[in-house]
Amino acid sequence: MKSAIIAIAAVLALWAPSALVTGWVEQAGTRLAEREAAEAAGEAPPTSAVAAVSNEEYCTPQLKVILRRVLQSCGLAQGGGGERGCQPATAAQVAALSGGDFNALFLPMAERAGVVQFDASSAELDASDRALIDRIFSDQQGASYFFVVARASPDGRAEMNAELSEARAAAVLTYLRERYDDPDLDREVGLLWLGEEFAQLDTEFCSWQRSGDAATCDPAELNRSAFLTWVDCSL
């Protein structure tokens, strides 16, 4: 009788743990197989998000259409090959907007934008200009495009102002090339030079980040400038 009790205990001790362990492992195997089947059938729950460029709320379909037009027509979405930048007439044409509406596109980007102010008849960057460019450009985050929209004040001839605004845009791009070892630069930086003809900035932009004397701001100073901004839109 006693030997039988011990034998029963021994058999139980041998059988029960093995049976339990087999059950636990096989249950896990069954769950794994079910999950694999669900994944194969496309019924698996979504996994974590995928890294992507930013796409802010202000990127409305209408804005994207205009941006796409500007990028393609002005040679900005072609990886740096060929002509870069939009001349005033082209910009107005592809934007298909009034100057005021064109400027209004950038209003949601106030935190990401700045105005590099040049001296009259100059396309030279001074220290405060470079500091502003650095501050804005280094804060790319997930933005895909960096817009440089150069202008000139209406003083002087229109042709000369067109050339001056082009030189101002080019000065910013040259500085970026020299300062940053970024292989994406040509894919990202888009230049528009508007001369005096299109989308002059009004004093609403005086409150934005600006280089130069922050105490004074008049329309002429404001438009001797290159307007910089990252555009957080995924096109």
Partner: peptide
């Protein structure tokens, strides 16, 4: 800061999970 962002864009170009 610019370099850090470039690293994040390295991940974007490869569509890595976040």
């Amino acid at each position: 800061r610019s370099e850090l962002h470039r690293g994040l864009r390295w991940a974007v170009r490869r569509e890595l999970p976040v």
